[in-house]
Design a binder for these strands. Structure first.
Lengths: 147, 147
DNA sequence: AGCCGGAATGTGTATATGCACATAATATAC
DNA sequence: GTATATTATGTGCATATACACATTCCGGCT
């Protein structure tokens, strides 16, 4: 009985735990990245765009596992701040984007701060739990890929 | 060199992976809960309120590990839909909330759908990876509790 | 009684997230 | 070569998230 109750308790929910963990870790990274003016989501997005070269919204959506329409809006702050700019595209349906020089420069300045955040989390959790978490997340995402 | 590049690649970020996983799993739960009109975050919040009885914003913020001010707004839809209502409070600074009969009823109807989502994720990941993920998340959250 | 520090909460602003729906442009079938 | 299916994207709406700042109230001190 109590086992059943425990499994049904809201806090036992896989989704709830993942979301809680994401919120908490997001806050930690946010503190480190604050001097750059970048949120962690913007940092990730900028990094992918810089690494991929000119890239379309749809391709980005695959890369970052985010809804296409979310990216349309997440790009706005980066465009407004001149970190990303539209790039030429052969297909007029497709809009492509690339990092500007300012964008690449800011990303490079943000990298060590991101590494500090990564290290703070690793220090708090210890190498074993960190590795376990990464492994569990990776294998989970593989299995959930086509749902 | 390539190892260094890999570690610095945006996709290797703990925060990015957690957020991606949370998005993906959120979508799965959302599909199951859609017939109830509840988002997974609303389902969790309603569950906590129903389980705790009259509870303040501040207490809820601790329970669900969410910023206090976020909860102020997350409560709105639940209040508007008559699932949660204000409750008396001895301290006029504190606003307390409790689930209504409709709220408890809807939560009970949503529970099996939530269980279906939980099961779908478990089936996709398998019992071992599921247990590993839960364990890694639990231990991570413990270690990150006071950061 | 009156002041005052701390506690509990709300608001303004900005971003993140995704579904349903609409639009534009390319590719394909005939 | 046009009608149509498909592809790529944007928009309206609603919610989720949290920081900085403002407000209101309680409790203790004088």
């Amino acid at each position: 009985m109590s086992g059943q109750m425990l499994r049904l308790s809201p806090a036992a929910c896989t989704c709830f735990r993942l979301r809680s963990a994401a919120r908490r870790v997001t806050a930690i990274y946010g503190r480190h990245l604050a001097p750059t003016g970048l949120k962690i989501s913007q940092f990730s997005l900028l990094g992918f765009i810089a690494a991929e070269g000119p890239v379309s919204i749809g391709r980005l959506a695959e890369l970052v596992a985010t809804d296409r329409t979310t990216l349309t809006r997440n790009l706005r702050p980066l465009l407004n701040d001149g970190l990303v700019e539209p790039a030429a595209s052969g297909d007029r349906r497709r809009r492509e984007f690339a990092a500007t020089a300012a964008g690449r420069s800011l990303f490079k300045r943000a990298l060590p701060l991101w590494a500090d955040a990564e290290q703070e989390v690793r220090d708090a959790m210890g190498p074993k739990i960190t590795a376990d978490l990464h492994g569990a997340l990776d294998r989970s995402m593989e299995r959930l890929a086509d749902l």
